[in-house]
Design a protein around this nucleic acid. Structure first.
Lengths: 105, 105
DNA sequence: TTGACATATCAACCAAAGTTGATATATCAT
DNA sequence: ATGATATATCAACTTTGGTTGATATGTCAA
């Protein structure tokens, strides 16, 4: 069992922001298959180089992915913990039925 | 067992965008306790009325919450399906170790 | 029907995010 | 050292998002 901790909403908002763009979700989905170098992602997503670089930076700064330099190439991969953190936040948003309390009127 | 279906990334991006703001996460967290009227949310989050209304609209348009009018009050509650959809998307983003394929160099 | 209240919408504005093309940096091969 | 390649950064710009105060709508109570 992994230690679970209530997620800070500010952190969660950062994660969700990074995930709120179709291009970035495309990146993240590719990385599900394991580490990928930028060149592969550029091909797969056919995005302009600077554009892709921008989105990778957003994901990285949000802590959702990490990079590793290998000679002239840079490889990105998912950061499991962050993805799980976001997942746990959502899991904590289960609606419970309200105990009979009428607010108003 | 519920039927699971691969989530459309565009839809997922919409959900995550709606969740990418601290005020909106605050709303969603309150709604975890069940249906709430706008008046309660206004108090709890002390946000200006039009501001709160704006954020409720964003969440509603993303399908994450629903509203119900009751006389002069409007009550909002979580849309379980959407929250779970977002959760399932994240659950599908489990990193697998890459099968030995070197991309470049 | 009038007035009070709850909520939504609007317009104006400011700030943040995304795109593009150009340039910089790092590493490799020669 | 030189040139080629991979990636990052930058500046200029366009687009999208958030806030505010004012006004509109809908519903109730008197």
């Amino acid at each position: 069992m992994t230690t679970e901790m209530a997620t800070d909403p500010t952190q969660a908002a950062r994660w969700f922001h990074a995930l709120s763009d179709a291009t970035r979700l495309g990146i993240v989905m590719r990385l599900t298959g394991g580490e990928r170098c930028v060149c592969e992602l550029t091909d797969a997503l056919d995005a302009a180089q600077s554009r892709l670089s921008f989105h990778l930076k957003v994901l990285k700064e949000a802590g959702l992915i990490t990079d590793r330099r290998d000679g002239r190439w840079v490889h990105y991969s998912l950061n499991r913990e962050a993805i799980e953190g976001a997942g746990q936040f959502l899991a904590s948003i289960k609606p419970r039925r309200r105990l009979k309390v009428e607010c108003c009127g």
